[in-house]
Amino acid sequence: MPKFKPHIRVKNLNLFYEGHHALKDITVDIPEKEITAIIGPSGCGKTTLLKSLNRLIDLVDGIEISGEVIVDGEDIYSTKVDVTYIRKKIGMLGQKPYPLPMSIYDNVAYGPRIHGMRKKKELDGIVEHYLEVAGLWDEVKDRLKSPASMLSAGQQQRLCLARSLAVEPEIILGDEPTSALDPISSKRIEEVFIALKKDYTIVIVTHILRQAVRLADYVIFLYMGDVIEQGPAKEIFENPKEERTKAYIGGEIS
């Protein structure tokens, strides 16, 4: 049993894509206010698992899902739960930056606005604050009204992060959030993540082992839909118990 306080508890999660068993009886605990990295070879189910954590997986047609994902003591798949509430609480950063087709300001204000905030003053404050947190404010403060698409990819990804943070989630999911970025932009995103973990529970999927080593406190190793091993990052990287984890970390399977 875990020695930490879990923020998300996944229990016996099974997921089928039209017959393809993509997640096999997953049971994992994700620690609060730490960075958890989900690692594993391509196609092992990392994205699927991540999207199951904020029910974005609901958007895929023809899936079958069973098991529980308990966040703050509540199963997010329970029929009583309002899915928009879950997604507000659990933010997501995608693989590529997708700015909404509107200005920089409106991108960050989008979330607060759809959740009912109308006051210009408060919105201004939120936009500034979260652009600061994402490390973008200084670069964009003079052109908040210009289209978000004019930013570089690295800036766009930080904008997307600010946009996610602006709805005040407790948990942030990142699906290979730096894979489309240059090394310098990746580094900036990594720094922001490290700074964020004092307030947020963070789960990232990554292909890059060294990134996992740099960021993760806790690691989940997935292989063909199975959780092979999970534990504190140090243990997994320095002293993996399972043969397949050793092979993956040693670079023999990728």
Partner: peptide
């Protein structure tokens, strides 16, 4: 997806 993921 971005919009829905923000809880829209």
């Amino acid at each position: 997806e971005v919009s829905l993921a923000l809880g829209a």
